[in-house]
Design a protein around this nucleic acid. Sequence first.
DNA 1: TACCCTTTGTTAAATTATTAACAATTTTCT
DNA 2: AGAAAATTGTTAATAATTTAACAAAGGGTA
Lengths: 207, 207
Amino acid sequence: MKHLPHKTIERLSQYRRALLICAAKGKAHIFSHEIAKIQHITPVQVRRDIMLIGYTGTLRKGYNVQELIDLIGDIIDTKEGLNVAIVGIGNLGRAMINYFNGKRTKLSIVAAFDSNPDKVERAFSGVKCYHIDQMGEIIKNENISIGIITVPAGAAPEITEKLVNSGIKGILNFTPKPVNVPSRIYLEEYDMITSLEKIAFFVKTHA
Amino acid sequence: MKHLPHKTIERLSQYRRALLICAAKGKAHIFSHEIAKIQHITPVQVRRDIMLIGYTGTLRKGYNVQELIDLIGDIIDTKEGLNVAIVGIGNLGRAMINYFNGKRTKLSIVAAFDSNPDKVERAFSGVKCYHIDQMGEIIKNENISIGIITVPAGAAPEITEKLVNSGIKGILNFTPKPVNVPSRIYLEEYDMITSLEKIAFFVKTHA
DNA sequence: TACCCTTTGTTAAATTATTAACAATTTTCT
DNA sequence: AGAAAATTGTTAATAATTTAACAAAGGGTA
Ligand SMILES: NC(=O)c1ccc[n+]([C@@H]2O[C@H](COP(=O)([O-])OP(=O)(O)OC[C@H]3O[C@@H](n4cnc5c(N)ncnc54)[C@H](O)[C@@H]3O)[C@@H](O)[C@H]2O)c1
Ligand SMILES: NC(=O)c1ccc[n+]([C@@H]2O[C@H](COP(=O)([O-])OP(=O)(O)OC[C@H]3O[C@@H](n4cnc5c(N)ncnc54)[C@H](O)[C@@H]3O)[C@@H](O)[C@H]2O)c1
């Protein structure tokens, strides 16, 4: 197994999410076309992705759900797990913490930061909120490697810089303001408006 | 201008978002490399996208910001605009309404739905919340064509079906449960965990 | 004027991603 | 046993996307 395509990594994450649900329902084996149905893709693509990670199913029986979950874990997760911090405990930040909380063992939100004194020193869905000035210290002490940005757009550049200076390795930016990071840092950005506008375009052109 | 690639549509939406900020700052012209810098892509890609939509800049002066905004609008937006509904007024739903509110003229969230009686008949960031049972009626009356799903994952299939039966044209699903829709409906799904796991993978392999 | 620099627009090449095709194997059925 | 059906694994083909290459044009400047 050499270089996994970007898109394959995304799909593996999604397969695992679906597989965990199957496992919870007591399903022991799954066919490529079942995974495909769930993810709205083709069975060939599923088989190809699984081939790329070197896993082999059983003919006419499909893939062993638990084995596949474990293997995807070996690829995506690190042994000790990675710690995550979230900056900005507004509506979106709270939604994210709340959603994430307790979902993953290998990826955990261990700290929150905010500048509003009403929020610091409180816990949100079990995650303690610190003042933004403590960021450098906490990120180092808690060995945090990923930061999620959910502050107002105007504060994004400043927060990004703080995260970078604190030694973060990856950033997920939810503000509509694109931020700049050194190339060693992996940056991912998401904005709902792009998703909606894409839908709008296809609704329009398909009409 | 024939078929615009999927990816180009996404980027056009992002360009416009950035261009609107530039316009607000009073910037009249912009170079391909400036747009590229903001979006973390190459200037060639920007020029190519702009070529595909048939716009032409001025040599050594760049693109006219307002013209480009307008043209992207012509491509993505419909003349009268599209109406959007959001289902599930929890943390995430409120974050989304609040973010979206007042941002776009051509795309507006005109109704919210929830099953919790404490939430119906109230307004959230200016959007009125109706009971889920009124969905069919309101979607037709208000001419809503896009639905955003932010209910608990378990309720996603049922809500999807309701939206489909109400005649919705496009769906943006934020629950971690992939849903099924007829092929005439454009579906977009987003899950933060995929983003985070992708970051985790690249942080791990780049280390 | 002649030359250099910048920046666009476009075609061509390279890369990445998806889909198709099909052999191989196991199970089921007759 | 033999035929039919289902399903995986893999290679080959196709399609989509990005990147490179470069000509053309405008402006600055010696
Ligand atoms: N990408 C998306 O789809 C999407 C959706 C909704 C919102 N958003 C964006 O996410 C961000 C947060 O949205 P929200 O609704 O949670 O906003 P919010 O105003 O509710 O929350 C912002 C939080 O950040 C804190 N904050 C402000 N300045 C800060 C600073 N300098 N340092 C640390 N903390 C600071 C505030 O105290 C507040 O708690 C906004 O930028 C919004 O535009 C993005
Ligand atoms: N994609 C992402 O990145 C992301 C992030 C956070 C949360 N989520 C998901 O988004 C969803 C909402 O998250 P949240 O934190 O806002 O949850 P929440 O519990 O705060 O809100 C859910 C809302 O849906 C309403 N609801 C429940 N059942 C309903 C039904 N049958 N019909 C109509 N309304 C109903 C509830 O009354 C509540 O208001 C969850 O599925 C969560 O997993 C996704």
